[in-house]
Each structure stands twice: as structure tokens, then as C-alpha cells.
């Protein structure tokens, strides 16, 4: 599991996603192919805005999982660290633990979101 996590570090530690130079679309998480332009698309990595708005959310096992629209229009599913969430709530990125590979394995870190107060 270590190499699989390691490959994603750049995209998880910060909000780095894909931008299609042909159609101007943003994707987060990163994509290998632009679903609109297909083989004609030209994707490159780009650092996305730190803030966004909750479009919708659900609560799974006490965790808030939200569809967040970042300020550049890219949409992503991410955990929101808060007591409660609301549609339209403004959030910003936060660096948190995702989990760990048992007591002796590596710790997975990445981006979650917190309310802007």
C-alpha cells in the first residue's frame, strides 16, 4: 500500500488537481483524461483555490462527507471537520490525518475541509 499512497501525496497534501488547457475544465481529484475532450484534451496539474462552498452533504458513521465546489468551479467529495454542516456553508482546506495502516504501518495524511468562521 505504501507506493499507492506515495503516488498521491502531491494531490492529497494540497488541493492539486487537473486543468484541461483545451476546454478550461478543472477536476479534483486529478484525472488522467479530460472526460469532455477525450483524447484531444490537454491536462496539466494545477494548485486549486483553498476555499469553496458546500453544495450538498451526508453523514456517514458520524463523519460529514460533503460535495464541495471550490472557488474555481471544481467539485470534490471531501470530509468536513465540524459539528454540523449546511448547504451553502463556506469552507477552507485543512491538513488532517486520513487514517493509518494499523499500529505499525504508515500514517495517511491529506486534505479535509473546515468551516470558515
Amino acid at each position: 500500500m505504501v507506493p499507492r499512497f506515495w503516488r498521491k501525496i502531491k494531490y492529497r497534501y494540497d488541493v492539486v488537481g487537473s486543468y484541461c488547457e483545451k476546454c478550461g475544465s478543472y477536476y479534483y481529484p486529478k484525472r488522467e483524461l479530460c472526460p469532455r475532450c477525450r483524447r484531444k484534451g490537454r491536462l496539466r496539474d494545477e494548485k486549486f483555490p483553498d476555499e469553496g462552498t458546500i453544495l450538498s452533504y451526508t453523514v456517514v458513521n458520524g463523519r460529514i462527507i460533503a460535495m464541495i465546489e471550490l472557488n474555481n468551479g471544481a467539485r470534490t467529495l471531501a470530509e468536513v471537520c465540524a459539528e454540523k454542516a449546511e448547504i451553502g456553508m463556506r469552507v477552507r482546506k485543512a491538513f488532517r490525518r486520513y487514517g493509518e495502516d494499523g499500529d505499525a504501518g504508515i500514517i495517511y495524511y491529506g486534505t479535509k475541509f473546515v468551516p470558515i468562521c
Partner: peptide, 16 residues
């Protein structure tokens, strides 16, 4: 700290 915070996550936030 929150349940998903530790020394590394807090260091990143302060550094940012």
C-alpha cells in the same frame, strides 16, 4: 486536538 489532528497536521497549519 481533534481526532484526526497530530503534531504534523498542526505544524502544517501553522507553517501555512
Amino acid at each position: 486536538p481533534d481526532i484526526d489532528e497530530d503534531t504534523a497536521t498542526m505544524a502544517v497549519e501553522a507553517g501555512r
